[in-house]
């Protein structure tokens, strides 16, 4: 039991992203309202963004800007760069792009939802389906 707990705590970032992902998936599958589904989709995408951000993080490391390098405090005499002291910026940069993608997806999805609302005057999936079968 203690083993399991330490196992979970040691890798809490992975557990967190899996929980968020499942919440998102649940909302996308189960919810009846299209906007709620969209919110679920956003949670789902955010969980993956958090996953990427967390894998770039290192304990005790700093942001990768050379001004903060060790030994730079005294007039910049010695500029010693040790890669181990910096977090890896690449996953974070990737996620900037992924955020743009997810925002664009959200925008397209909202536009589609607006069109559906204009056509059916509702965003509840069962009501839309009822109207489709009645025709």
């Amino acid at each position: 039991m203690v083993d399991l707990l330490t196992h979970i705590v040691a890798k809490y970032n992975y557990w967190l992203y899996i929980i968020l992902m499942m919440i998102g998936l649940y909302a996308m599958i189960v919810k009846n309202n299209l906007v709620k589904k969209l919110v679920g989709m956003n949670i789902f995408q955010t969980s993956i963004i958090l996953f990427f951000v967390s894998i770039g993080y290192k304990k005790g490391a700093t942001i990768p800007i050379i001004e903060n390098a060790h030994g730079n405090g005294h007039g910049g005499k010695q500029l010693l760069i040790r890669a181990a002291d910096y977090i890896n910026p690449l996953p974070h940069v990737l996620m900037l792009t992924a955020i743009v993608v997810s925002v664009a997806t959200f925008g397209v999805a909202l536009a589609l939802a607006v069109k559906i609302y204009q056509r059916y005057q509702t965003l509840e999936e069962d009501e839309i389906r009822m109207r489709l079968t009645r025709k």
Binding site: M41, F44, V108, L112, K115, L132
Partner: peptide, 19 residues
């Protein structure tokens, strides 16, 4: 009638795939 609706369904599933 059905274009936006089927597109939105495609979008939900497509997002899961891409993610």
């Amino acid at each position: 009638d059905r274009g936006p609706l089927s597109s939105l369904n495609y979008l939900f599933i497509g997002v899961i795939g891409a993610s």
